[in-house]
């Protein structure tokens, strides 16, 4: 299943791929002070203008990948390029410029609890531009309108439901019209209606604004509906990748276990333990 290449990707070992906005190249990463390797020789391309999903179980390193693209941690080895430029933590100015061109939707929203909905969305605009207040006002309302929450502008984050908070965070993520928007578990814990709303927003905004989207999730159902390409990650490695059609038709045991929701398969049901017979054996 992994033979069809991601849309617009050249051969895997090419240093630059103009059709990919973000290129992750043989990245190895583990947190400082911990021997555990989170990402083990991971290579991915995220095509421009496409919605790419990263699927995997909890703790497989998906969220870490997003943080590495944002330059939050230094890489163990390998490289990440954003729009052709290396993501380099040692150059704060370049990092600053890079971060202005990306938006991130954190799990559960991560709205600033001491600011109202309006001020949350206005935050990046006020921090990074010198626009006059009435222009900021109009921009914020437009972004809120895009996610359907223009009327909620004066509410405090604590007064929002999960789905609404997620949508406000989305409006905040696109406030500066970024080139890349990263979504960290946007579907986690939502009711079916909100699920549908968020999924549709991700797709529509991606196409309407011409941005590139990366969605980290374990919701296979929603992903199949809206994305252009899928990477499957388990234990820090890419185990499978393809378009939604490839995934549906795939015979790869991991993909099948994931898609069908089988309790046991390549990802085992039992946590490693000694054999059952030995557990309950008693000396007679």
């Amino acid at each position: 299943m992994s033979t069809p290449s991601p849309p617009g990707a050249a051969a895997q070992d090419d240093a630059r791929n103009p059709e990919a906005l973000v290129e992750v190249d043989h990245v190895v990463f583990g947190y400082e002070g911990s021997p555990r390797i989170i990402l083990d020789d991971v290579s991915m391309d995220f095509g421009r203008g496409k919605v790419t999903a990263i699927l995997g179980g909890s703790g497989s390193g998906k969220t870490t990948l997003l943080r590495l693209i944002g330059g939050v941690h230094a890489l163990g080895s390998g490289s990440i390029r954003f729009d052709g430029e290396l993501v380099d933590r040692s150059d704060p100015e370049r990092l600053f410029a890079l971060r202005r061109r990306l938006g991130m939707l954190f799990q559960f929203g991560a709205l600033f609890t001491d600011l109202s909905v309006f001020e949350n969305v206005a935050f990046p605009i006020r921090e990074h531009t010198e626009l006059p207040e009435d222009l900021v006002h109009d921009l914020v309302l437009m972004k809120l309108n895009a996610v359907g929450l223009r009327g909620a502008r004066s509410l405090a984050p604590s007064e929002l439901s999960g789905g609404m908070a997620r949508r406000v965070a989305l409006a905040r993520a696109i406030a500066l019209d970024p080139m890349l928007v990263m979504y960290d578990e946007p579907f986690a814990g939502l009711d079916p209606i909100s699920l549908g709303v968020v999924g549709q927003l991700i797709r529509k905004l991606n196409d309407a604004l011409g941005i590139t989207s990366v969605v980290v999730t374990h919701d296979i159902y929603e992903s199949l509906k809206i994305v252009d390409y899928i990477y499957f990650v388990a234990e820090g490695r890419i185990v499978a990748q393809g378009t939604p059609e490839d995934v549906r038709a795939s015979t790869d045991p991991f993909v099948r276990q994931f898609v069908d929701g089988e309790p046991d398969g390549p990802v085992p049901f039992h946590y490693p333990a000694k054999a059952l017979s030995r557990e309950f054996a008693r000396a007679i």
Binding site: G70, V72, R100, Q107, F108, A110, T113
Partner: peptide, 15 residues
């Protein structure tokens, strides 16, 4: 703020 990832969000917004 650290637990709810507000500080990370700020950092990612280059603040």
């Amino acid at each position: 703020m650290k637990t709810t990832e507000q500080l990370s969000a700020m950092e990612m917004m280059a603040v």
